[in-house]
Design a protein around this nucleic acid. Structure first.
Length: 490
RNA sequence: GCGGAAGUAGCUCAUUUGGUAGAGCGGUAGCCUUCCAAGCUUCAGGUGGCCGGUUCGAGCCCGGUCUUCCGCUCCA
């Protein structure tokens, strides 16, 4: 029985803070908007998710290898990828309708009106002025131009505008200590990890002697200067991605797209997460690089939201890099094409991408795990416990070792068990407070197994293992414990 | 970015019209107990988000700012 209150999300955020999973960044300085830090248990959980993903990609697929590319990359990469151009347009908002316009679209529409009214000369002047101002990045001038021509919002009909702003979602900084010209030294913090894979495509293919089809996996931080970043760690300005780019022969991308679409959902379900909380969302409107795209969505407390994306990116990225870098990004395919009897030969591979947000996966697990459970005690009274039903293989702490008392040599036996298990998985030792209280503390951080050492342990070498989800207890040999836990977390 | 709401101890919240802040839970140290948050004792923890204004006096009134949540917008 669970209390699914409407404040579940709030409760999860509080719990994450109270038990050392997630803290607001720079909290003693009032925090930094949409930036969060992971605490002792949070960093363990996050690392476990990352490791599980990494292993499922690289270790479990012989044709997938990993890399770890730098966050700084050559500025031209972002021109080639389309990130610079697609987000360099100045925008303006109407304060009454809250509708946002691209400044050039707004002014061009006005020019069209003028032309239609027979004032084509005025229209031409307007366009020329606009282009000069855009080239000079004179945002004040652009706003004035809009106001001077009494351009109004088509929804509200008013000319109540905000200032003109440039919404580039990439963070930039200067590269190198001495700078004569800021633009020359401008570098971006990567807005996605994928490009680090694309630009290393040939390095990896050659050195790891990979044959198509093959994949390159990477986890790492990415940065986006989101206009609105909210919902706890769901949308942050600094976040971590786990991406895999799968390079395939042109013409086979549809099959591989289907394959990874299904494979990735299976990965989620392999963690024991409920299928009913998942759904696919196929994209109708596609990004500039995409051929096919879908999201794997999960039902968070605030609704169905994207956790992972699977995109068929065609040869867009490699072709762009080939063009901008003037280095061929081709692969020679020695396999025989049955229709011609000859090798497939040189081509730019197509790419199917799987891209999952690590922080979103973290929030997903926390949302799924959190429960305020009502317990009915033997005397009929009720009690509640807060428990995180995290998958055992991802839990920050796997085993809590708890001597029933701190006397009679029980701590010594418990320490012996600690020494035995510590090298294999994360253990936690505690002898303070009543046993029930210690169980509850472990429930709150999602520890799947607690072990109690009592007086009987001294006589027959058995201990009590207590399971987090069922709260059931069993007597098992202390010597069997390590293997018992190992079996559950692998 | 626009609109709405909120910010008091680690968490959840009190503090009746302005008079220099309390509780429960949690934490800590110890006693006692020993299989599901028992009890007793000890201690720690807040310049009321921050800055300014009004006032003899501000957690409370006013302005600004930061942060968070909700709706809209955005999300290559």
């Amino acid at each position: 029985m669970s209390i699914q209150s409407e404040n579940t999300f709030q409760a999860i955020i509080s719990h994450a803070k109270e038990y050392g999973f997630v803290f607001p960044s720079s909290e003693i300085y009032d925090g930094l908007s949409a930036v969060y830090d992971y605490g002792p248990y949070g960093s363990e959980l996050k690392k476990n998710i990352r490791d599980y993903w990494w292993k499922s990609m690289t270790q479990m697929h012989e044709n997938i290898v990993g890399i770890d590319a730098a966050i700084f990359m050559h500025p031209t990469i972002w021109k080639a990828s389309g990130h610079v151009d697609n987000f360099s347009d100045p925008m303006i908002d109407n304060k009454d309708s809250n509708k946002r316009y691209r400044v050039d679209h707004l002014i061009e529409a006005k020019a069209d009106q003028l032309t239609a009214a027979g004032k084509s000369e005025e229209a031409a002047t307007l366009i020329a002025t606009m282009e000069a101002l855009l080239a000079a990045e004179d945002f004040g001038g652009l706003k004035k131009l809009i106001e001077d021509h009494k351009i109004v919002c088509s929804v509200s009909g008013t000319g109540n505008w905000t200032d003109v702003r440039q919404f580039n979602l990439m963070f930039s900084t200067e590269f190198g200590a001495v700078s004569d010209n800021e633009e020359d030294n401008k570098v971006y913090l990567r807005p996605e990890t994928a490009q680090g894979i694309f630009v290393n495509f040939l390095n990896v293919q050659k050195t790891a002697r990979m044959k198509i089809p093959f994949g390159i996996a990477q986890t790492g931080k990415a940065f986006r200067n989101e206009i609105v970043a909210r919902q706890f760690i769901f949308r942050m300005r600094e976040f971590e991605q786990m991406e895999m780019q799968f390079f395939v022969r042109p013409g086979t991308e549809g099959t591989w797209y289907q394959y990874w679409k299904e494979e990735r959902l299976k990965w989620h379900l392999s963690l024991g997460l409920p299928a009913t909380k998942y759904r696919y969302h196929d994209h109708v409107k596609l990004a500039h690089y995409a051929k096919e795209a879908c999201d794997i969505e999960y039902e968070f407390p605030f609704g169905f939201k994207e956790v992972e994306g699977i995109h068929s990116r065609s040869d867009f990225d490699l072709t762009q890099h080939q063009q901008y870098s003037k280095k061929k990004q081709q692969y020679f395919d020695n396999d025989i094409d049955e229709s011609t009897g000859k090798p497939y030969g040189n081509y730019v591979p197509y790419v199917v991408e799987t891209s999952i947000g690590l922080d979103r996966m973290f929030l997903l697990l926390l949302s799924n795990a959190y429960e305020e459970e009502v317990l009915t005690k033997e005397d009929g009274t009720t009690d509640t416990r807060v428990v995180l039903h995290l998958p055992a293989k991802l839990a920050p702490v796997k085993l809590a070792v708890l001597p029933l008392t701190k006397k009679d040599g029980l701590p010594e036996l418990a320490q012996q068990l600690m020494r035995e298990c510590k090298p294999y998985f994360h253990c936690f030792y505690e002898e303070k407070d009543a046993i029930g209280k210690r169980y509850r503390r472990q429930d709150a951080i999602g520890t799947p197994f607690c072990v109690t050492i009592d007086h009987q342990t001294k006589e027959d070498g058995t201990v009590t293992i207590r399971y987090r989800d069922s709260m059931l207890q069993e007597r098992v040999a202390m010597s069997a414990l390590k293997d018992l836990v190992m079996k559950e977390i692998f």
